[in-house]
Design a protein around this nucleic acid. Structure first.
Lengths: 264, 264
DNA sequence: CGCCAACTTGATGGCTGTCAAGTCAGGTGG
DNA sequence: CCACCTGACTTGACAGCCATCAAGTTGGCG
């Protein structure tokens, strides 16, 4: 699928088997830099000039693979870096004191994770890879330092944090005032949009998460998610088999979300 | 209650009846500056040195009164400034396309409003005063400029945005996995904490919002809010009469939130 | 082939939304 | 000062949506 060549070193990062002082520079190192990354328009460097982009390249401490099921970070640990997802798919889970757990979001390429931890310098949620992924590690201190010199970087960073707040407002609206069908329709449309923004099909994709994780995110039980998906399929809105999903009528789904019948 | 003296001018702001070039400096002008504001530990300038504080003073474009029921800003309008609440109580409402509306948060002294608008340069929610209030207007561009020169201001601004994200995660958890009683208990405890942090009684306060607004925020109907409050009262957890509320047992309320029986 | 997690589908019950009626508080005008 | 009115609130009866419990199916993997 996407090129999965392992680069030994990027910036200040050496392969474990190498002395840390030895830095191996790959011939095509630039291919892994922000300046040549296909996600640059979605990710942190969006809107920067070529020169500024080079500075951001230097910001990335290293790229780090995260295997499916592994934690990128855990709730409670100190914040070191933010993480930009380069490839793959992740979820973030908020933990309640009493063990209650809820999926707070699903994250894909170009998304920045760890923003919630800046406030306390301590991660407030777990980040788990739902498929083999790769992230770019961005030390917060370095980012703050650089954004003092590059106003457009500073602004874009603020924009990213603000967008996260706006996204949360949307989720709050969803959880607070929508019925099961509307929630699921909104969820599918959201995934559709985000895949489309990344150059994938907006109508056919793979659900990387389980029904239970979808339910947790939407405030529903997994049985309700399953039932509702079946219902959508019976109505001819989607075609779903296991984790493979095809949207047959984007319009009808959209109508479902805005044509809320009850729970005014 | 709080001193409600009207200062004609602060920085770059003149009373309408005065020529804008004339600046009247009040004798006790300093009393209205961040450097002498009692909220400084809660608000934007938290953690700054005395010198840095003076720079932040200059940041405040003006103070602006907002009467009960008035809008501080409306969804859709361009973002000019962030607003720090100096006194009073406000709500923010997200609007769904189809007219559905939900209270996204309640805000009191020291809170910063408008953070969700940075992403699009356009406000995404309405801000309405629930009682006569006063806000400090902070032009975003100026704030971004100053925070480039004062790292601790930059960090604190990031902290504030991050805290907002963390708060939203809490609300998502509440909306997604709690039952009506737990939601309301969590809501009352949250208010209690915030009042306490501002030097008010944590156990006795005035509910500035209607039952309907509480319900909207918590994803419940106003009848359910009313019933649950009555239920709490019958159990001896609170004493409520109209908008006056007294918490009789903080511990039992806390237990309610963490001792979730159902909806695992 | 067999096991297990993930999923589907059905039956039942409870929480909370909906509808309705009545009470209360605050403000206005006579 | 009181009657009146309106919006906010309370309380009750009922119903619907979704959680819960349960059983069965599917798919992936060793």
């Amino acid at each position: 699928m996407s090129p999965s060549i392992q680069y030994f070193q990027f910036h200040g990062f050496a392969h474990p088997s190498m002395p840390t002082t030895l830095r191996i520079v790959e011939v095509d190192k630039l291919k892994t830099a922000c300046s040549t990354c296909s996600l640059q328009e979605l990710c942190l460097p969006a809107g920067l000039s070529a020169i500024e982009l080079k500075s951001v390249d230097e910001l990335i401490a290293r790229r780090r693979p995260v295997k499916r099921g592994d934690y990128l970070f855990r709730s409670g640990v100190a914040l070191h870096s933010l993480y930009a997802i380069r490839s793959g798919f992740m979820k973030s889970c908020v933990l309640h004191e009493d063990g209650r757990e809820q999926v707070a979001g699903f994250h894909m390429m170009g998304d920045l994770m760890g923003l919630d931890a800046i406030g306390t310098n301590q991660h407030l949620c777990d980040a788990v890879a739902l498929e083999d992924s790769e992230v770019c590690e961005i030390p917060l201190k370095d980012l703050e330092g650089l954004s003092r010199n590059i106003p457009s970087l500073q602004q874009h960073f603020h924009r990213i944090m603000s967008r996260e707040i706006a996204r949360d407002y949307g989720v709050m609206l969803l959880l607070g005032s929508m019925r099961a069908e509307e929630r699921l329709a909104a969820f599918l449309l959201n995934l559709s949009q985000r895949f489309a923004a990344r150059g994938y099909s907006p109508t056919e994709f793979h659900l990387r998460m389980t029904r239970e994780e979808i339910g947790s995110y939407l405030g529903l039980k997994l049985e309700t998610v399953s039932r509702t998906l079946s219902h959508f399929q019976a109505q001819g809105l989607i075609a779903v088999q296991n984790k493979h999903l095809r949207i047959l009528s984007l319009d009808n789904l959209k109508e479902l979300v805005s044509h809320h019948s009850c729970r005014s």
